[in-house]
Nucleic acid binder design. Structure first.
Lengths: 139, 139
DNA sequence: ATTAGATTTAGACTTATTCTAATTATTGTT
DNA sequence: AACAATAATTAGAATAAGTCTAAATCTAAT
């Protein structure tokens, strides 16, 4: 466990979770379908009317670096944020854009295979299924 | 095979590969490390000095839709283009950004598993290994 | 109370990409 | 060959996502 000496102006772990960061975290946690930064801003403003766009971005980055949320990117669309921080997989609907989480144990296996093949030192792996979600598949 | 009736002004298949589209395709094919649109623009200008940025983007989209190149996206970085059009996997170096192609046969297997799990109608799957490339891994 | 450092804010800025409107090129028809 | 119809190209404006800046505010430790 890392113990940090406090110096003047150095905030404690707890205090670092400011009001705005707390609200941003709440919004991500409570939003069912992986909000974008714009979605988060909109919701956060309801609870903290003076919050700025920059603070939403700063907070999302802070929370991501702190391991409290995950950033998901797909294609050239805006990033979306996920309260599930354990590694997991995604499926994106090509038709309606819906993004769902799932987890395949095999994926981590594949990471090792991929690392062997490429001689990369593996850190994580991103697996995204693209197709039509249950609502959009006509069958 | 689909036969299309020609109407006035309708270009033939072949003719649709205009001079600029041809150059853009050449550049993607000849560039070793998956160029961005900006890279393509820069190179294309050498062969066709009047080509515009918009045409590079239009051409990249045309070539992509025609199945002649692939667009690769990762994180919030600029799209990169790949002359390898068969489905394949990617590895990205977190340190230097290098992007390499590889192919694991297991990935297509995983697509089926992912589709079963999510009830999506599968179309394709994106697998990206993130880590350190051979040059950047210190070991 | 004072100070140092961290955080927030508003708005300017950057970067990637798309759009627009005018021009140019191509093709098929007379 | 001239024309009409359509498609493609061009330059630059517009848009969207995200980052940066500088001033103001907050927090924590003296």
């Amino acid at each position: 466990m890392v113990v940090q000496k406090k110096t003047p102006g150095m905030a404690s772990q707890k205090a670092n979770l400011t009001r705005q960061r707390e609200v941003v975290l709440q919004v991500v946690n409570e939003t069912e379908h992986h909000p974008t930064a714009a979605d988060v801003f909109e919701q956060a403003k309801k609870r903290l009317p003076t919050i700025s766009y920059a603070t939403v971005y700063n907070s999302l980055r802070y929370l991501k670096d702190a391991g409290l949320i995950l950033e998901i990117t797909f294609g050239n669309a805006a990033s979306r944020y996920d309260s599930e921080t354990r590694r997991h997989d995604h499926a994106v609907c090509r038709h309606c854009g819906k993004l769902v989480d799932f987890d395949l144990t095999e994926t981590v296996e594949l990471m090792r295979a991929a690392a062997r093949r490429t001689r990369f030192k593996p850190e994580t792996i991103h697996l995204t299924l693209v197709g039509l979600c249950p609502d959009c598949r006509s069958d």
